[in-house]
Nucleic acid binder design. Sequence first.
DNA 1: TATTGTTATGTAATCCGTTACGTAAATTGT
DNA 2: ACAATTTACGTAACGGATTACATAACAATA
Lengths: 330, 330
Amino acid sequence: MITIKDVAKEAGVSVATISRVLNNKPGVSDETREKVLSVIKRLNYNPNLLGRNLRRMETKMVLVLLPAISNPFYARIVKGIEDVAQKNGYGVMLCNTDSDIERERMYLELLKNKLSDGVIFMAPEIDEEELNDIGEKYAVVQCCEYKEGANVSHVSIDNYKASYKAVKHLIGLGHKHIGLISCKNNFLSTKHREAGYKKALEDSGIEFNPCYIRHGDYSFKSGFRAAHGLLNDFKEITAIFAISDIMAIGAIKACYENGLKVPDDIAIVGFDNISFAPMYNPSLTTVSQPKYDIGCTAMELLIKQIKNKGGNKENIVLEHELIIRQSTVK
Amino acid sequence: MITIKDVAKEAGVSVATISRVLNNKPGVSDETREKVLSVIKRLNYNPNLLGRNLRRMETKMVLVLLPAISNPFYARIVKGIEDVAQKNGYGVMLCNTDSDIERERMYLELLKNKLSDGVIFMAPEIDEEELNDIGEKYAVVQCCEYKEGANVSHVSIDNYKASYKAVKHLIGLGHKHIGLISCKNNFLSTKHREAGYKKALEDSGIEFNPCYIRHGDYSFKSGFRAAHGLLNDFKEITAIFAISDIMAIGAIKACYENGLKVPDDIAIVGFDNISFAPMYNPSLTTVSQPKYDIGCTAMELLIKQIKNKGGNKENIVLEHELIIRQSTVK
DNA sequence: TATTGTTATGTAATCCGTTACGTAAATTGT
DNA sequence: ACAATTTACGTAACGGATTACATAACAATA
């Protein structure tokens, strides 16, 4: 392997000069600089970042922990993160936690072991306390999903308002019996979306029926089953709001298999506006999160923290938007 | 920051002993070992891997370069890669290249700079020569998509046979005018899938009509447009084969918007069996690749190369399967 | 001419953990 | 009881790049 020493010897200068050239530092004559550069090229030298990183005690790498890359919801967010990262000279490592706390902890080792300068959680599995501990020592940002108690920055939308708006849309179309497909988990977004659903009903003088809520796990199948159950048990239901697009799509599929047409017989609203939402048949009415901006903002917060050695915690709420498509209106 | 020296001082032993305990090496008495472990826990010490990696000249990290994490096709493959990696003590960094050769090169620096022990390409943008150069010095595996000329291992299916089988399925259902939605790119898979299409027609005595081929870019929209064009220009077409599921889904959507029912009026076949294929309405007939196994195999090959310092190039072809769903048969 | 400042470059310490080698003590064998 | 072996540890070199500090050459100023 070629090291900085080899280059120094070949160019007839010291390693310090090579280092200065590599890092574009002043104090090197143009002549020497060019000679060094040509030797670097000739020897095909690549600086060993393990050495540099050890010395500088930084890696210019950040960790992004996501429950599943298969979830299309994250794609645009990650794009935002990557674009900002690249602009600032950072690399991004995406890591799948599979919503498994052990895997999450395993990847967090990369942070503790100095192999990464900071971390963005898409949906932390660890609890408030652990998150807090990490947040005290390292640069951490939560993105979309977050733990309320933890003193750790986050970027998200107002899920309560968004959900409220989605259900109000259905009510505005004349629906009075509206099912909800939610999830059994501790996510704050879930709690807020359920609360928004209830508030919208209440504000419109519609009585809340707890039996109209079914629980899935964000999967297509769970959405399918939940909708199937709702439609069988409550013939009066004419609309369903699902707290994720994938479950909403499962619900549409269930409607069709039950001989019901969407939106003619049943209206469906999802949440997230994943890339498949406009592709589906019928295309899906849903709440759009400004995913790209969320990603950009999260990365910007993280970089700020890295630079300030962990200072400034901030919480940022971005605007959502209801996108009306075929699944509620012809 | 707490270093190995602090731990050594606190435990009253030398750094060598700490290191031996950290790495489970022999030559430490049980008593000392326990004392060291308790100090490590008490001080909340995390070894700095930058030091270790520099000394060992390895990182136990591998790079996975994929064109877009938003493409659901890669999800299961990545899962396979990760599972095998974890079993062998490797971490996986996923990196989005956006099919951008510069971004790809940027991430390849991580390999050249020793921040990663090897790389798996999902679809290399760099040409044969560059790939060859990298393959000579580093551990490299190509996964699914590959460059034929490069002397670099790959894992894939037989796209020619798979495509042949898909088109034969349509012919077996009585279709004689079959459109093809392909892509304009240099992927070998594309070439092979087109060739399989032609061969299937030929073997069944159906004349190949070059106008029946339209080109997309793997996107939903491009599939939509291609199908739209085909249906408008050639009323006799009763079936369409798309070389990717997403384009096939675009095609289905186009059919519905043209007032044609799938599969009653038009049969559609896709390729890849992404997670959305069974969810779609109608569910999509498609060619399934053993994605999880492909991922596992690729990672196994890579680990073998890392251990053998770049030796043994291997090419492995895994079996595909045609999955028949609603889009071709009621 | 003596002094000060500037520029280009080199020397060596440093970052943290690993490991080859050395040593002293304990154990075994005869 | 003595030599040979084993065990448990320590010392210091090492990996590659960075950087504080030192130095030498030269120019500018008084």
